[in-house]
Design a binder for these strands. Sequence first.
DNA 1: TCACACATGTAACACGTTACATGATTTG
DNA 2: CAAATCATGTAACGTGTTACATGTGTGA
Lengths: 174, 174
Amino acid sequence: MALGHAVLANLLYGDASGYELAKRFDVSVANFWHALPQQVYGELRRLEGDGLVDGRDVEQSGRPNKRVYRITDAGRQRLRAFSTEPSRPTSIKDDLLVKVHACAATDRPALIRELRDRAAQCERKAERYRHLRDGIADPGGDGLGADLTVEAGIEFELSLASWCRRAAARLDGR
Amino acid sequence: MALGHAVLANLLYGDASGYELAKRFDVSVANFWHALPQQVYGELRRLEGDGLVDGRDVEQSGRPNKRVYRITDAGRQRLRAFSTEPSRPTSIKDDLLVKVHACAATDRPALIRELRDRAAQCERKAERYRHLRDGIADPGGDGLGADLTVEAGIEFELSLASWCRRAAARLDGR
DNA sequence: TCACACATGTAACACGTTACATGATTTG
DNA sequence: CAAATCATGTAACGTGTTACATGTGTGA
């Protein structure tokens, strides 16, 4: 149930279809959990089979019908149980860091270019997260969890961006 | 070849056995790529089959024999090619962030405790990375890649620790 | 003698990614 | 008329985790 908990957590912020959830997994949540649409659809079917979410078909005019999911009481209980299990340290995988580690055997100029690109990318992402944060309804109450996690996202992206620029400078021989 | 590149990059810093590599994947490299021993052993066999590393058996007295691997020219070329391929944004997976996102449905005190534990854990990790960094031979030359990546590790851990403490405080209702 | 470090694996399973597939409606 | 958005999936493959398995030597 790796993805499952993330999906359940997301549904706390409002019922959603697979399509809508997949988009959230590509923006707000992407910061600490990433998933492709296919995975989300599959996970929702599984969660429904386990009774952790409830799906209902919604007919729409002018666009395809969709299936909207809501978290069930069993789903909430599952999240509660999950919250008391130990989690282990963040798992990070980053090819760019591997490249820097291997810089002695790389195409230096290409690596430096990629570091600068990545820095810019991170800064744009931080900017998007900032807008997201400003849109959170009640950051002290219902929106607290979302507020805290986007905050983490902003800080992570900015700190990575800053590291990328310094790494590029050092690899450039100053 | 997800793990493969990380293994090759590591071997640039000296020949090693599977056991030794597995330990590096649990300390220095864990910051941007994590792997279990089983995976490392398997990957080394595969890399040897592809001619990207060379293994030789080393007899030892007083302890089991080991197989020590060295990166080949083909392996270096592979790293060079890898360095020019695009990498995509860091992939992060963190259960603790999922829990915070789901804080409305969690056991709050347990979550707060875990955040404080994690903060302490991150700070210890940063401390270990600092020692590692101080042990790097030539941070401006041969050790540049390693120096930059541990630096990234230190900053990541410290920024996460600080976020954890702030999150715990806010969840605690100040 | 018990635990720990050294040293290496197999097998089953869970999870994630890529490629492929379909089809309607809206916007430029 | 082309491209983007909405909406949902299957199949094959690659990667990562858990559980199990084995055996020696050193230090408490």
